[in-house]
């Protein structure tokens, strides 16, 4: 990242922070119309710095590692499929995996913010799944928080000398689960319970989202390992190019 790009991100972040303070920000995707306007705006604004960083990161990838773009397309397609598949879970309701953690491990978390935004936009416009007004909040949980958690867990696991495939599993499992915990936090902030306030609401939303998500997060982790194994066998050149083969080096 050049000095200029770093400054741009810092500038955008600086511009966004006062916005968040003023607006007083004290799911499966959150449904259309289920988040009050001030939260919609606040979460949307919170996404902007990450999206700028993501744009720069993808641009850099397309300039410096053209060969690896094919993997980015693959990871995007994977997110597209996996977030369309609603899978039954132990709580008797359905949810879907996110697909974004895997891409975060390969390309870094900020690149996935753009990919996730595209998928969410498609779902909001054509499927009425998620929503335009809740796009910011959903982008923050699925395309930013999830990837960053996954990336952090992955790097930490490798530092602790956890075998690579197990690190991939842990990262994608926790990245997926983290997305839905963030969704629960977002909803609990918007709907604090009359008795018990934020924490009581949070417990209720977590019981809907997080518990349902546990088995799906396991699936997300397992599938990510399968894909990484397939790529290691057939796309070694590209993985080396983006520095994924060498483990921690990058």
């Amino acid at each position: 990242m050049t000095q200029k790009q770093k400054r741009l991100i810092a500038l955008v972040t600086g511009l966004c922070i006062p916005f968040l303070l003023v607006s007083g920000v004290s799911a499966m995707h959150i449904m259309e119309g289920y988040l009050a306007p001030k939260y919609c705006v606040a979460w949307g604004v919170a996404c902007i710095p990450f999206l700028v960083a993501g744009f720069i990161s993808i641009k850099k990838l397309s300039l410096e590692h053209r060969k690896a773009l094919i993997l980015l397309a693959m990871v995007g397609a994977y997110t597209f499929v996996i977030s369309a598949l609603k899978v039954p879970s132990v709580t008797g309701s359905c949810s879907h995996a996110t697909g974004t953690p895997l891409g975060a491990l390969l390309f870094g978390p900020s690149a996935m913010s753009i990919i996730g935004l595209i998928v969410l936009l498609f779902q909001a416009l054509l499927l009425a799944h998620g929503g335009i007004t809740t796009l910011g909040a959903n982008t923050f949980s699925m395309a930013i928080a999830g990837p960053f958690i996954a990336f952090g867990v992955y790097k930490l696991s490798l530092l602790l000398k956890v075998p690579k495939h197990i690190a991939v599993f842990l990262a994608c499992f926790l990245g997926d689960l983290g997305t839905y915990c963030i969704t629960s936090v977002q909803l609990a902030m918007a709907y604090p319970s009359e008795v018990g306030g934020f924490s009581a609401s949070l417990a209720e939303f977590l019981s809907v989202f997080a518990v349902t998500q546990v088995p799906l997060a396991v699936i997300e982790g397992l599938l990510s390992v399968v894909i990484v194994m397939a790529l290691e066998a057939h796309a070694k050149t590209e993985l080396t190019e983006i520095g994924f083969m060498g483990g921690l080096a990058k």
């Binding site: 799911a27 499966m28 995707h29 959150i30 449904m31 289920y34 609603k86 039954p88 879970s89 709580t91 008797g92 309701s93 359905c94 949810s95 799944h129 909803l187 209720e204 939303f205 809907v208 989202f209 349902t212 998500q213």
Partner: peptide, 13 residues
């Protein structure tokens, strides 16, 4: 179980 979406469950909540 009805196996509805967890987003609908959240809407009810």
């Amino acid at each position: 179980a009805a196996f509805g979406g967890s987003d609908d469950a959240a809407g009810d909540l």
